[in-house]
Write a protein that binds this DNA or RNA. Sequence first.
DNA 1: TCTGGGGTCCTAGGACCC
DNA 2: TCTGGGGTCCTAGGACCC
Length: 426
Amino acid sequence: MADPIALIDCNNFYVSCERVFDPRLAGVPVIVLSNNDGCAIARSEEAKALGIKMGAPAFKMRDVIERHGIRVFSSNYTLYGDMSRRVVDTIGGFSPRFEVYSIDETFVDLSGFGERMIAQASDMRQEVRERTGIPTCVGIAATKTLAKLANFAAKKNPLFAGICNLTDDAIRDYVLDRVPIGEIWGVGAATEAKLQAQGILWASQLRAMPLPHARKIGTVVLERLVAELRGVPCIGIEEVEPQRKGMAVTRSAGTPMTSFDELSQALSAHASRAAEKLRSHGLVAGTITAFFHTNRHKPERPQHSASRTTRLTPMSADSFDLVEAALRCAARAWKGDRDHNGYAYTKAGVILDDLVVADKAPRLLFPPDRPRDARLMGALDAVNDRFGKKTLVLASEGYKRSWALRADHRSPRYTTRLSDLPTVNI
DNA sequence: TCTGGGGTCCTAGGACCC
DNA sequence: TCTGGGGTCCTAGGACCC
């Protein structure tokens, strides 16, 4: 059999993070909202039981929240990111080979533990719980896809008590007969519909599908998926984070933007933030895309969506370069009167592509007369690092920030900001 | 009437993930 | 009034080459 892989996945991660720092949240319904307090992206079991759906818009839940006293939080990514790091640190103590798959999931290579495999997984859960306060579930199987499925079963079926081992043939058949195809990692709405149309409803049925048929329905991706369901590993554990290919900063506007000025200010802020991210990773970008669009959830209103892409020559991580390029794109994409063109834009962003490690970037044959001075960006980052984000910004960002997003229910940055440390009364 | 064959590279768009 | 943000991979099709 292939080497066993474990997937350790934090339960309702964002909610669990909030609970670590406020024990009064235990046992009560809690939800965490997306950016701009838009929709629910994490729910406690109690909130799920009340029918709160993943991705449900906050404004439509007002009644339920009121009626059941659901505790609501804006997302606090600084806190979640830091807690995630602590969880991963703990997991790293259990196996030398692991892959951080997302903020709340890690694949762990369990080969070599033999009989002790299950005990090891159990210890790992225990240790994460003790050191971070975060509850987890573990799924074990021969492939990543099966490990994801095992984790799903561990979460859903209390019989497994948090650990589901699909390397056991009987358990594997039992689970695959009962998991709907839509719950399988890699089967989204489109593939689910295609499969259902052919009468394939359960994971075990998909596993039995001939490989050529799978490829016909869903290209090589579905073919690999079927192989993985059969226990043939097609997706390896990636211990080192691969060089990232693109980077985006996009935001909904707190209040819709109706003038080119407002849009420019928002895009300036997004482009600066993108440049900051690039520099923190030691990268430069080769192309930049700026886009903006109206509210797609309101088709009865006038709709407009536009985007433009331009090359950055030389490749750059300089805030001035990126802001300039983004605004050039926006100006080309804007239509009509600059003060008021009849559209209300609710979302804008910049996307960077062709990312390269800064000192490997190609040099220009004919460099610009007045090249950007890297020391300026160094100073900018140093000031903002020391005195807080946005202490120093480019003037093109404006000062009103009318587009800025909402976050009315944010919890304190308990672990990353001294002034937010909890106080203990003795 | 008859109009080659075989490549590469790039981009846009779809599908999926958390 | 109010519906997130940030990624990856794959394919088809066009442009271009000899």
